[in-house]
Amino acid sequence: MSDLPPEVEKLIDQVQYEEAGEFPVERGYIYTSCSSVENGNPLFWDDAVARAVTDGPIAPPTMISVWFRPHQWSPGRTEPGVPLKSHFDLKEIFELPEAVMTDNTIVFHEPVRPGDRLRTRQILRSVSQPKTTKLGTGRFWVIDVEYLNQHDELVGVESYTGFGYRRGEA
């Protein structure tokens, strides 16, 4: 029998936080991301190759989460923007001050292109019983993030496993 509080139970498999990315997909971040891992794939550096192979420039598929991460600050924002709000909600509900991600699955569908405006939605899939790891005691949870482009085409689905925890006594 589940030990989850009703406020968490009712969130399982429910779509939350449907929101648009705060800016269109742009090449500056593509170059910065490629630079960060020294990715010389000519798809991202040579427009002739991109035209021939992908019918024009695309973003590296693994950048998918970049496009939904909010600005740390923007006009009118009183708290730092955080992505994956469902994850932070669970930390608060369970009063678990720390968290790390342990697993990530990404399925790539339509390519993401400069100028695209992506929309996302978050779906909590599961929350574990309390567990103790070397980091502390807490719970694992799985959150899916679905990404669609401005044509309502699915561009990807990410599944994160997070571990929210409270550090053990030293």
């Binding site: 891992v37 794939n41 192979v53 590296p60 990404i106």
Partner: peptide, 21 residues
């Protein structure tokens, strides 16, 4: 991604990636 496409070249297209840290 960089590791995989260094090997495959630009015509390699990722479909799915699952990793555990």
């Amino acid at each position: 991604e960089r590791f995989l496409t260094d090997w495959s070249g630009p015509t390699g297209r990722l479909g799915r990636m699952k990793f555990r840290m």
